[in-house]
């Protein structure tokens, strides 16, 4: 009986899953074809898979340079955002003032500003300072971009920690620094880790600031992939290989961070 009951959800559920995933699957398949097979007018289903495109992309293009930039700005931006938001979240959660809800709401409301309204001044300012196409500038922008989300998430994790435990630590003569270091950060470590994971994903996939402010020197992978959009000659197989490499690691991160994604991006409206 249960088997029959599960048949319809099984068929529909898996059809949807395969349909949604198909473009990615098609990209992965194309990445192990030869260029001629990739641009054949009839679909080539049976072929000898090859890793040649990956080798070409890794060896003959600047893929690794851009990948390094992606790692630097994503992890750098996340580190900076965490360093700024942990103290802020601590103050908001444990030294509750009447201003806390208002401050949090204001922080979230900064996300309502369309980034394009800041584009011209930021661009001109960076040009004036000689910081266009610089990793440092992009890292700082990414940290600021994610700051409202990281503060909010860490605040919500801190709020789940029973205050009695911190008080007990204080009774035992811990200094505030020890209290933060050995109790608070230890206990909220899973929460902090998933906050960082979400921030890394958002930085990795950010493409407004990276496309506008960086090119060959500091450009992350979003910029590298965009260079394939030029019309001179389609290299479908190589584009697919480069794209697969670019989304692979972050896809795994994303699968790991599903729950935090819901919690972080809805600002707790849905848990």
């Amino acid at each position: 009986m249960t088997r029959r009951k599960q048949l319809i959800p099984f068929v529909l559920g898996w059809s949807i899953a395969l349909a949604m995933f198909f473009p990615i699957l098609w990209m992965i398949l194309t990445s192990v074809k030869s260029e001629t097979q990739a641009s054949a007018s009839k679909i080539v289903w049976l072929f000898q898979p090859t890793l040649r495109n990956y080798i070409t992309v890794l060896a003959q293009s600047d893929y690794l340079h851009y990948a390094e930039n992606s790692i630097l700005v994503s992890f750098g931006g996340t580190l900076l955002a965490m360093a700024l938001s942990i103290p802020a979240a601590y103050a908001l959660a444990f030294h509750r003032t009447r201003r806390a809800p208002g401050l949090l709401a204001w922080m979230m409301s900064t996300k309502m500003m369309p980034p394009v309204s800041a584009l011209i001044p930021i661009y001109l300012l960076l040009a004036y300072l000689g910081l266009l196409d610089s990793i440092v500038a992009l890292t700082v922008i990414y940290a600021l971009m994610n700051l409202p989300i990281t503060v909010w998430l860490i605040y919500s994790y801190f709020c789940e920690i029973p205050r009695e435990i911190l008080e007990a630590g204080r009774m035992d003569g811990m200094s505030r620094w020890q209290e933060i270091r050995y109790l608070l950060l230890q206990m909220s470590l899973p929460g902090l880790a998933s906050t960082a994971l979400l921030s890394i994903i958002l930085c990795w996939n950010e493409a407004f600031w990276s496309l506008n402010l960086t090119t060959a020197k500091a450009g992350p992978l979003t910029v590298f992939i965009a260079t394939y959009s030029s019309p001179q000659g389609l290299f479908l197989a190589k584009l697919s290989a480069a794209s697969t490499l670019a989304i692979g690691p972050i896809l795994v991160f994303g699968w790991l961070a599903q729950r935090q994604l819901v919690r972080g991006l809805t600002f707790g409206a849905v848990k």
């Binding site: 995933f21 996939n205 493409a207 979003t222 670019a246 896809l251 991160f253 994303g254 699968w255």
Partner: peptide, 13 residues
């Protein structure tokens, strides 16, 4: 996992 995968694909890809 397959259904949610597209959300993690970067915009240019």
């Amino acid at each position: 996992l397959l259904v949610i995968a597209p959300f993690f694909v970067m915009p240019t890809v």
